[in-house]
Design a protein around this nucleic acid. Structure first.
Length: 268
DNA sequence: AGTCACCTGATT
DNA sequence: AATCAGGTGACT
């Protein structure tokens, strides 16, 4: 599912269901979702505890307890679902957090790349420090983007995906943001003018806000993303098709071993 | 700074 | 059979 907008949508779906609920049982169905040996620790710790807050930092979901939090990272195909009866769960379920009345939360993940980890206050601080600015927060200003850009020689696409700079942007929205800002994904960050960076700042906010609104009311099945609910993808996945703005054919290039889609006509 | 392994399923 | 996939962390 998951870049920032989808993870935020999951958070909003889970919060009203889970807030204040007490976990009466926890079952890790796939050992490798947790670091070696910590499965038992997770099950034991969360059992009997109440969820005091459901938050998000970058693409991480955090279920908070009194002195600790369960960090859930959905990676490529993970999802978190409110479940009316946890005795019936989908094949790809990796973790069950059970409340009373057999209700609970399911962590499903067909590809099993997602990870779960218990963090104390120190661990939470370390996580926070390891991640850059939230792009939809007030701290994310053109000035902040400019100072980060000055220090980076990365191609723009890789800069956007670097979680230590700006946190929460992934492959699809990085491509869409750069199209909206008309920036060539291969351009080095420190070569962009201030006017260009202001455009980029605006595009980051607009694309992520629009996607978040749509993600909240969508069930984004793998491969469909938010497109079905009206999020217009201008470049992602459209190699060979015509640019909706200038009619040139969309290209696919490789950056950091991932596909980047862009329009050679309007991105410079 | 760049590439690959981690997983599984869908598509070519 | 081979390649691709919304992410990351651990390697050269």
């Amino acid at each position: 599912m998951p870049e920032l907008p989808e993870v935020e949508a999951v958070r909003r779906r889970i919060e009203p269901f889970a807030l204040g609920r007490t976990i009466v049982a926890a079952h890790v169905l796939r050992q490798r979702i947790a670091r070696n040996g910590s499965v038992g620790q997770i099950e034991q710790f969360v059992t009997g505890r109440s969820i005091t807050c459901v938050s998000r930092r970058a693409k991480n979901l955090l279920l908070h307890f009194d002195n600790a939090a369960l960090r859930i990272h959905l990676r490529m195909t993970g999802d978190l679902l409110p479940c009316p009866n946890v005795r019936f769960f989908p094949i790809a379920t990796r973790l069950i957090l059970e409340f009373d009345k057999h209700e609970g939360i399911l962590f499903t993940d067909p590809r099993a790349l997602g990870r779960v980890e218990l963090l104390d206050a120190t661990g939470l601080e370390a996580l926070d420090r390891s991640l850059g600015t939230e792009p939809l927060s007030p701290q994310f200003t053109p000035a902040l983007l400019t100072s980060a850009a000055r220090r980076s020689r990365l191609p723009a696409k890789l800069f956007l995906m670097n979680q230590a700079a700006i946190a929460g942007i992934g492959n699809i929205y990085a491509a869409e943001i750069l199209f909206a800002a008309r920036i060539d994904p291969a351009r080095r960050m420190n070569s962009l003018s201030f006017a260009c960076l202001e455009r980029l700042h605006g595009a980051i906010q607009e694309i992520l806000q629009a996607a978040t609104r749509i993600a909240e009311v969508t069930y984004a099945a793998p491969g469909h993303f938010d497109e079905a609910a009206g999020f217009q993808l201008h470049v992602y996945g459209r190699v060979g098709e015509r640019c909706l703005r200038c009619n040139r054919r969309i290209r696919r290039i490789t950056q950091g071993a991932r596909s980047t889609y862009h329009c050679p006509g309007c991105q410079h």
